[in-house]
Nucleic acid binder design. Structure first.
Lengths: 336, 336
DNA sequence: TTGTAAGCGTTATCAT
DNA sequence: ATGATAACGCTTACAA
């Protein structure tokens, strides 16, 4: 009672495996009646293609690997979710690997996927990964297609999908300015990451364009967690700020708590805009304005670009996904 | 400049592919010097095993599929994340599929995984899936191992990993009672799901064990979203309740808003405990007490059980993962 | 339109 | 401890 193969179907119908294979594959050169007979017989016998054999024969799996630092982060799981939908639609299965932000795990994941002969890899690099050396080596002479997203090394082959971080931060800052805030600090994150640097630039440009003074003393280059949000907000308030742009929502939350502890009214006395549009932002009081990164869009764009690379319709390139400012209470002085 | 195979290594060393294969596989019957030579040569030539060929030959992929309703839900992404870590450690790669709560997509995912000859499948069924018929058919005669989690059909072969929902709800309710709440309503969710029914039972048992009257008129069998949380809390308050147990955190949040709109002090006038311990619960004010489901533990338990099934160390069984009550402000009258 | 036949890279069996 | 050989199920020139 072992699984039927195309040979079994062929024997059953008195034809050859090649014809069965062609019929099953939807090849044009098969008589309609033959195709029908094959299909019927396959169904009747409970035939299921052995993808292992098929992939092996073709030399490449109909599989795409996705490598992310952590699966259980809203940003990444949304990206994976959107990408999965696109890939399934196109007949690809999706293998996921997480690196836990470790370069070593990233190396291992790359090796595994290369051994599995995946058709392509979508990757957002671990925090520890400092260059594209490993990935370049692993992919060399393998024609596995590559799409990087969010954290990318532009020098690598393939395509790249990133957020328009500059304009996100720009819009957030302009919004604060439009709401009458006069001295706007910024918690911008570590600047060795492109996206953080771009946000920083967007913040600066917005100030400049509005004719406001850029003041390096109220820019905080710390990691974006609640604790730093709290401490940086504290410094900002001491420095006379009446608003803070934060490169993350968790740090924005910390800032919010600090302002509250200081007895400041939000948004009356102090305005805050975060980044990432985490779910909790809509649920806290006061609700948090935030730059939404359109993570699902990043995922579907990355997946579609991968399909284009695989079909030869793209040679590689760069895609920028827009952000949008979600205005909530924490920065809405005007509509007060 | 094509990828080297074991044949290339064999030729290079003047031995046969069989020996190379054995050496690479760590077979005991290989002279130490030979093994070393093979390893060195493999490294030098940049050899990488063709898993496609290996899996094909063995008839089964070193791959496990995970099927969930949605990837981008904290509960599921945490489970996937934990499971992935366990599987990687054991040398398996992980394929993910999401069903978007649709029976049709679940069927498709099962077919895909079966075709891929995965070693095993971890699944939490879609809301639409009403029985185990499809999965039983797909797995029949395939010896793909099965581990169901969260939403399960106990009649299927393999193992099952579920939360101890009964005791979670029980503890939550007892906690409310211990904090002096006298009339405790419950938003329990649709009772056609096992876990919701078990929570309902836990809630009832807690009341009974505490010598309190169970009152069906303050039990709400609605879905657990913020809106129903709000409306059910409203009804509960009208019915004289001073507390609410909610089978979800989002609905608990709605309840919280309702109480606040009614001018009730939380936890003074009204107590609330939710379920799932969503991240936002710790971030809102007042913070939300909640039953934590230990999702990572579900994931790692399910994965480890799968490994046991695969190695023949388990014949299938049921695993219950504990819950824990995270007490926060919304129900903490005592420590006021 | 269909058949023939070779072969993908690895592993398993059997022999040496 | 190693070699010889077959086989896994499928696809694809090439031939008919």
């Amino acid at each position: 009672m072992t699984k039927p193969t195309i040979v079994d179907i062929a024997n059953e119908l008195g034809i050859t495996p090649s014809t069965v294979s062609r019929a099953l594959a939807g090849n044009a050169n098969v008589k309609e009646s033959t195709r029908k007979a094959v299909m019927d017989c396959a169904r009747k016998m409970g035939y299921e293609r052995n993808d292992l054999a098929s992939d092996f024969r073709r030399g490449v799996a109909h599989t795409v690997g996705i490598i992310v630092p952590r699966i259980n982060r809203e940003f990444f799981s949304s990206i994976i979710s959107a990408a999965e939908s696109v890939f399934v639609e196109a007949g690809y299965t999706v293998v996921i690997c997480q690196t836990h932000e470790k370069a070593e795990d990233e190396r291992r994941a790359l090796k595994t996927l290369a051994s599995s002969r995946v058709a392509g890899i979508l990757i957002s690099h671990s925090a520890e990964t400092i260059d594209g050396k490993d990935i370049r080596e692993t992919l060399a002479g393998s024609n596995i297609k590559l799409v990087q997203f969010d954290r990318v090394f532009p020098s690598l082959p393939g395509s790249v999908v990133v957020n328009d971080d500059f304009n996100g931060a720009y819009a957030a800052t302009r919004h604060l300015i439009a709401n009458g805030y006069k001295r706007i600090g910024a918690l911008v994150g570590y600047l060795d990451t492109d996206s953080f640097r771009n946000r920083f630039e967007g913040y600066k440009a917005a100030l400049t364009d509005a004719g406001m003074q850029y003041d390096a003393s109220i820019v905080y280059k710390e990691t974006i967690v609640p604790e730093t949000g709290y401490s940086c907000a504290s410094m900002a308030i001491d420095a006379g700020c009446d608003a803070l742009y934060s490169s993350g929502d968790f740090s924005a939350l910390g800032a919010l708590e600090c302002a509250r502890d200081r007895g400041l009214d939000i948004p009356g006395d102090f305005g805050i805009v975060g980044t990432a549009n985490e779910k909790f932002g809509a649920m806290i009081a006061p609700s948090l304005s935030s730059v939404d990164q359109h993570s699902a869009e990043i995922g579907s764009n990355a997946a579609k670009e991968m399909l284009r690379l695989l079909s030869g319709k793209s040679e590689g390139g760069s895609i920028t996904v827009g952000t949008s400012l979600v205005v909530r209470r924490s920065s809405s002085r005007n509509s007060k």
